[in-house]
Amino acid sequence: MDHLLHLDRTLDELDPPRWTPPAADATHLVRKVHELRYVPLSALGPADLRTLISQQVALPYVLPLAVPLLLEEPLLDAYFYEGDLLLAAVDAPVSAWAQLPDLGARLRAVITTLPEGAVADLPRGATEALARFVARPESPC
């Protein structure tokens, strides 16, 4: 299924079950993720995608939105720092990427072309996270 065909719909519509409202004492992050489930996919920006991917919410829908951005600008500063969207994406579970093998392969190819100096400027552990992602098999065994 091409998840990009549903850009006018929200995650709450596409990714059942529908979520109940967050608790009154929910953290800012929990409230934000709940809010993002009501935003049409076409309106989600890089920071929104980073948040959803980091929280592992509706990955079959949000990873296909993030990868084209990363193919164009791998070290995109979505919200916190240069490369934050990329690092969120490569930290997504193998099972999520198994559903999107072509996108994963394209992202791995882009990562291998990143200049060593640019990767060295990323936060601690980023080099290892990128290397693990690149080393993953095309599909899980």
Results as ranks from 00 to 15, higher is better:
T20R: 15
P22F: 10
P22Q: 10
P22R: 11
P22E: 09
A26C: 07
H28S: 13
H28R: 15
L29M: 13
L29I: 12
V30W: 12
R31S: 13
K32T: 14
H34M: 11
H34W: 15
E35M: 12
Y38W: 15
P40R: 09
L41G: 12
S42E: 15
A43Q: 14
A43R: 13
L44W: 11
G45E: 15
G45N: 15
L49V: 04
L49Q: 10
L49A: 07
T51L: 10
T51F: 07
L52G: 02
S54H: 09
S54R: 01
S54W: 00
Q56G: 13
Q56L: 14
V57I: 12
V57T: 11
V57S: 09
A58R: 08
P60S: 05
L63K: 08
L65Q: 10
A66G: 04
V67C: 08
V67L: 00
L69W: 03
L69E: 08
L70I: 00
L70Y: 04
L70W: 02
L71P: 02
E72Y: 03
E72W: 05
P74Y: 03
P74E: 02
L75R: 01
L75F: 02
L75Q: 08
A78R: 05
A78T: 05
A78Y: 06
F80K: 14
F80C: 14
E82G: 09
E82I: 04
G83P: 04
G83V: 04
L85T: 05
L86V: 00
A88W: 00
A89F: 03
A89Q: 02
A89P: 08
V90G: 00
V90Q: 00
V90Y: 01
D91F: 13
D91E: 15
A92T: 06
P93Q: 11
P93K: 10
P93G: 01
V94R: 14
A96Y: 03
W97L: 00
W97T: 04
L100R: 03
P101S: 05
P101L: 05
D102M: 13
L103S: 05
G104I: 03
G104E: 08
A105F: 00
A105P: 04
L107C: 06
A109C: 01
I111F: 01
I111S: 02
T113V: 08
P115N: 11
E116A: 03
A118L: 15
V119S: 03
A120F: 11
A120R: 12
A120L: 08
L122S: 00
L122C: 06
L122A: 07
P123S: 06
P123G: 04
P123K: 08
G125S: 10
A126M: 04
E128T: 10
A131T: 08
F133W: 00
